[in-house]
């Protein structure tokens, strides 16, 4: 009995002494910590999506807390949107900045009315699997496969598959970019929600070839390029691309597109549901 008692007492005693030393050390060598980090972290939604460019919410909060000069923007939290940006700004005592939210846009409008399949696929129902079989079953090898890898990756159920292609509900999209990483065709990209025209095609084939594959494809006719008053639209590698820094939202490119590959889009998601 005494052996056990001695052993227990010795270990407890050593533990107590260690604890006491630590308490004293903490008392006498205490350093005032920066509370900014915890406060900012409390503002952030905690989704750890990485849309801000940091490794999770902790990373962004740490960077903001460490940023004494105020050079780091407070509006990088896309899922949190304006509300979070305002909170962070008030914690840091800075002017609130408007968040230009990012929304995902799937660059393909080749639904089942516009294009067909080149073979009947009966395997595992994921886009990634189909992609491995002769580059996909669509007649257009660049287009949306439509088995919804993006929809299952989306944490907000913002994507649904209608008529064989992905549709993104901009009201639900938080711009986290999960779908952009999952899409095996790399169709989905994030765009600022203030833009009005989008190229809804990702086909880089020559015009005649694209026309055979899909009636909504970009045939690289360059009408958009000629009609654009600011030179924002250029056809690169047989596909129209828009330089949004020059775009004045006149819609001349979409009005003149013979196949409807450039579309007017409302990305603002006016009644966006953000938590």
């Amino acid at each position: 009995m005494t052996e056990i008692l001695i052993a227990a007492l010795v270990v407890t005693g050593i533990g107590l002494v260690c604890g006491l030393i630590l308490v004293l050390a903490d008392r006498f060598m205490h350093v005032e910590e920066d509370h900014t980090f915890t406060e900012i972290r409390a503002c952030l939604p905690g989704a750890n999506c990485g849309a801000c460019g940091y490794t999770g919410c902790d990373g962004y909060a740490k960077a903001l807390a460490a940023d004494k000069e105020g050079a780091l923007a407070t509006n990088l939290c896309v899922p949190g949107a304006d509300a979070v940006a305002a909170q962070i700004a008030s914690v840091l005592g800075r002017e609130a900045m408007d968040v230009i939210e990012q929304v995902a846009v799937a660059g393909c409008d080749g639904d089942c009315n516009a294009t067909r399949v080149k073979y009947e696929y009966q395997g595992v129902k994921t886009c990634a699997a189909v992609k491995m079989l002769y580059g996909g079953n669509g007649l257009c090898s660049y287009g949306c496969i439509g088995l919804g890898d993006c929809a299952s990756a989306c944490p907000n159920q913002a994507i649904c598959i209608k008529e064989g292609i992905a549709h993104i509900d901009t009201r639900l999209c938080t711009g986290c970019g999960m779908c952009t990483k999952t899409c095996p065709q790399h169709l989905i990209r994030l765009m600022p929600d203030v833009e009005k025209v989008v190229v809804m095609c990702s086909n880089h084939d020559k015009g005649a070839q694209t026309r055979k594959a899909c009636s909504h494809g970009c045939i690289a006719c360059r009408k958009c390029e000629k009609n654009c008053p600011t030179g924002a639209v250029t056809v690169v590698n047989n596909l129209a691309s828009i330089d949004y820094s020059k775009c004045i939202k006149c819609n001349k490119c979409s009005d003149n597109c013979p196949t409807g590959a450039i579309m007017i889009a409302d990305l603002s998601g006016i009644h966006r549901q953000r938590g």
Partner: peptide, 16 residues
């Protein structure tokens, strides 16, 4: 036990 406490102590000291 002792090493854990020691490292904690070192951490506090370094911080200070």
């Amino acid at each position: 036990l002792v090493i854990a406490a020691l490292v904690q102590f070192v951490e506090i000291t370094l911080k200070r």
